[in-house]
Simulated assay, not measured.
Amino acid sequence: MIEVRNLTKRYRRQVAVDDVSFSCAAGTVTGFLGPNGAGKSTTLRMICGLATASAGTATVGGLPYRRLRDPGRVVGVLLDAAAMHPGRTGRETLTVAALAMGAPPARVGELLDLVGLNRAAAGRRVRAYSLGMRQRLGLAHALLGEPRVLILDEPANGLDPEGIFWMRGLLRDFADRGGTVLLSSHLLREVEAVADRLVVIGGGRVVAAGDKDELLAGDGGTLVRARDQQALRAALDRAGHQVGTVDGRLLVSAPPETVGEVAAAAGAVLLELRAADTGGLEQMFLALTAGESVREAVK
């Protein structure tokens, strides 16, 4: 449902997003991770038509966001919970949005109940909301048009542990019913708990992408790099092995001996072959993005 191909964004001499490619399929939650300044928010803004790409494409349901006939019915977006009109009440905010996208008025009450904003909270002006309440209202707004896709940037900010657990269940249920979720968050353990796939970005480039279980595999996983990476990946696919990518290497769900045998049979020249050793998402994230915060501070 979401296809990002060679997406690039330049601001004069600075490259904020550099040749980023990934996809998000229906029925999955994709965790989009990276340190501050890595290009996550810029990428999401380009997908949602709020920023123009310098190169590359991003589509939702096969079309660029700006060409969607009724975007609110296709994709629900929460990029900034502070962007809502502070003078309107929560109920008014959703009612105006429902009128704009042609959603039934009854949907407003249903969603207020779903996100846990009771009658008193719904009647308060948004300026009086806590950050957690704004996040809940923003998620209700994203769900208003009954979209097939959700794009969320740090939706758990301001939520207490109970609220984070609630959001995890809501997103998992959305995906299990065939929806597509692209979720950016700095709460690594929560992403690890809910995501099916991971995309890690550092310095504007994708440094790892693939199924969560493959990327986090410890025993039996192998990192391999070949002179002809595409040919090796094709051979591994034909052999029935699951393959992800980590910082320019292939991460294969098989022991090194097996990967070496496949490579030898395919005539692939290997430049690197070693057992992968990861200790969960947090350790993988820190290893892949090591030095990014330092480089950002130096810029």
Rank of each mutant, 00 (worst) to 15 (best):
A265Q: 15
D160K: 00
G62Q: 02
L78Y: 07
A287F: 10
R225T: 14
L139Y: 02
T180M: 13
G169V: 03
A231Y: 10
S130G: 02
K9H: 13
N157C: 02
R148V: 01
L215G: 05
E261T: 13
A209F: 14
A38W: 06
E272A: 12
G49R: 09
D19N: 11
R73Q: 08
A25E: 15
T278R: 14
V96R: 11
D18T: 00
L79Y: 07
A25D: 14
M133G: 05
M284R: 04
V77M: 15
D213V: 07
R67V: 01
C24V: 12
R249L: 13
N157E: 05
V294I: 12
P86K: 02
Q135L: 07
E154W: 05
A231L: 14
R10T: 00
Q229F: 08
L131R: 08
K212R: 09
G27F: 00
A156E: 08
L50W: 06
L216M: 00
V224T: 09
A51V: 12
V207T: 12
V60C: 12
N118G: 12
G244H: 07
A290W: 03
R10C: 09
V207D: 10
E92L: 08
M46G: 05
A120Q: 14
D113R: 14
R127K: 15
G76A: 03
S23E: 15
G56M: 02
G145I: 06
A100F: 09
S184A: 14
G138K: 06
A276S: 13
P86L: 03
R125Y: 00
L139W: 01
N118R: 04
R168F: 13
S23D: 12
Q135Y: 07
L50P: 02
R134S: 11
G109S: 05
L143A: 02
I151T: 04
T43I: 10
V294K: 11
A120M: 06
L271A: 11
M167Q: 13
D237L: 10
I164E: 06
L50A: 15
R127V: 09
E3Y: 07
V246T: 15
A265T: 09
D173Q: 15
D80T: 09
G221H: 14
L171G: 08
A83F: 09
G56N: 04
L114K: 14
V77F: 15
A239E: 11
L286Y: 08
R69Q: 08
L250E: 07
P86W: 03
Y65S: 05
A266E: 01
G240T: 08
K40V: 02
G179S: 11
A83P: 04
E296W: 08
P35H: 05
D237F: 12
D277R: 15
T28V: 03
D160G: 02
E192C: 04
G158E: 06
A290G: 07
G279M: 00
D173H: 13
